[in-house]
Structure formats: structure tokens, C-alpha cells
């Protein structure tokens, strides 16, 4: 369970406040969608959960299964079960995708006090995962994300999530830059990972993604707060009416 209480966050140099007392709880197995206009702080929220350096947490707490994430380094948070699928996955030239996956998986296992996976076991898992997502084997030998198309990068994020088996998967605008076929493949990949123990936080501008990854709850974010919470039907309402109401209301 992820619990965020009264979270206040500013950009590191203190010039701008982005999150203003945000509260959000995501239960085990729940898929929560966060929607909201540009600049409402959605991506910031995902970065702060994962522990990116560029922000200053002024107040509040983030608990994952009762553990205080704010006291942990980004790699410790990952080992604790936080996975962030990046909106713009980074390129690591010269590091074969396979090498990276193995390093990440074993680092997390080490972080949890588990043994490293044997190479045959690891290969089996990667191959099975890659096949489901339509990732060709030769792509795994190329430098991570180097020269990958937008869709390939997003699929690679989902493959990583499948291998790392997080307790919460955060998808930061995973639908951006995807055509409809890629969107379906990625969504199926995510749906296959849904389980009673695993939660998801799906950040998106558009309702379209939520046709494929059907959420249990939808939260509207504006000016750094959750301003409304509802079921999946809320997404349709937003699609029809836009965010105009929330932008003006929250300003008041």
C-alpha cells in the first residue's frame, strides 16, 4: 500500500512550489489513475516518489507498506518495490540492454538480501518477457534505448517492470508518443502484471489509455493537489469537459 500524506514539494532551489499538501492512498492491487492539466505536478509526484534529486520535500510523508520512502536513496526505494516507467527513458550507450537488465535485477536482489539469479534463469525470464512484448532478441544486445523508437523505449520500460516485479509501478505518461498498436501491446503488458499485491499509479493526460488499462480509481490533480477522486467514469467526464473547471476552481 502506498500512502502519501500532506506532501509539500518545491523545486530544489526553492524558486517554485509544485506540490501543495497532496494526499493519496493506493491500496494493494489497486490501479489508480492521475489525470490533470500540464503543470499540475503529475510528473513531479512520480519523481518525488522515486527519489529524484532536483526536488525539496518541505513537509509530509510517503509510505510504501509502512516504510518511509523519503528517508531512502533512489536505489533502496527501487529495491523496496518502487518502479517508475519514465516518460522519456534515458539512453546508455555501449551498455547492452541485456547487461543492464541483469545488473539492475541483481542489484535489487542484493538490496533485498537475495541471491543473484543464475544466468540461465535470468535468460529464460528475459526471453519470455521480451516475447510477450514483441521485443526482438537482437534489440536486447544493443545499447540500452540507443536508437530505439519511442514505442520500443516504452516497451523496454514495461519489460524492465516485468522483470523487476515491483510492488508499485508508476507509469509516467507511458501513452505519450505511442501509436494505437504500441499502446495496445504496452497496455497488455501492464495488465498481465496486475495482481492482488501489486498496485499501479498511471499518470496520463488522456482517457484513451484508460480504455486499455482500466483503473479502479481516478484522481484529478491541479496545482499540486488531488482535487477530485472518483471511479473510472470520472475519466470520461474529464475527456468530455476538459480540465478548465479544475484549473479555475483550484486557483480560487
Amino acid at each position: 500500500m502506498l500512502e502519501i500524506r500532506n506532501l509539500h514539494v518545491a523545486i530544489e532551489d526553492g524558486s517554485k512550489k509544485i506540490l501543495n499538501g497532496l494526499n493519496l492512498t493506493i491500496r494493494d492491487g489497486e490501479v489508480a489513475a492521475i489525470m490533470g492539466p500540464n503543470g499540475s505536478g503529475k510528473s513531479t509526484l512520480s519523481y518525488v516518489i522515486a527519489g529524484k534529486d532536483d526536488y525539496e520535500v518541505l513537509d509530509g510523508e510517503i509510505l510504501l507498506d509502512g516504510k518511509n520512502l523519503l528517508e531512502m536513496e533512489p536505489d533502496a526505494r527501487a529495491a523496496a518495490g518502487v518502479f517508475l516507467a519514465f516518460q522519456y527513458p534515458l539512453e546508455i550507450p555501449g551498455v547492452a540492454t541485456m547487461t543492464f537488465l541483469k545488473a539492475a535485477l541483481n542489484a535489487q536482489r542484493k538490496g533485498r538480501g537475495e541471491d543473484e539469479l543464475t544466468t540461465p534463469d535470468f535468460m529464460k525470464r528475459v526471453k519470455a518477457g521480451a516475447e510477450k512484448l514483441g521485443i526482438p532478441q537482437d534489440m536486447l544486445k544493443r545499447g540500452l534505448n540507443v536508437g530505439f523508437s519511442g514505442g520500443e523505449k516504452k516497451r523496454m520500460e514495461i519489460l524492465q517492470m516485468a522483470l523487476l516485479e515491483p510492488s508499485i509501478g508508476i507509469l509516467d505518461e507511458t501513452d505519450s508518443g505511442l501509436d494505437i498498436d504500441a499502446l495496445k501491446i504496452v497496455s497488455e503488458g501492464v495488465n498481465a502484471l496486475r495482481s492482488a499485491k501489486r498496485s499501479f499509479l498511471v499518470i496520463t493526460h488522456y482517457q484513451r489509455l484508460l480504455n486499455y488499462i482500466v483503473p479502479d480509481t481516478v484522481h484529478v490533480m491541479s496545482k499540486g493537489q488531488i482535487v477530485r477522486t472518483g471511479g473510472k467514469e470520472l475519466a470520461f467526464e474529464l475527456e468530455a469537459n476538459g480540465y478548465a473547471d479544475y484549473v479555475t476552481n483550484a486557483a480560487a
Binding site: P74, A78, I92, A107, Q108, G111
Partner: peptide, 8 residues
């Protein structure tokens, strides 16, 4: 940060 988010 990307690498560290993956556990390194």
C-alpha cells in the same frame, strides 16, 4: 537517476 531507479 534512471540507473538508480532500477536499483543500481
Amino acid at each position: 537517476f534512471y540507473c538508480r531507479q532500477r536499483g543500481l
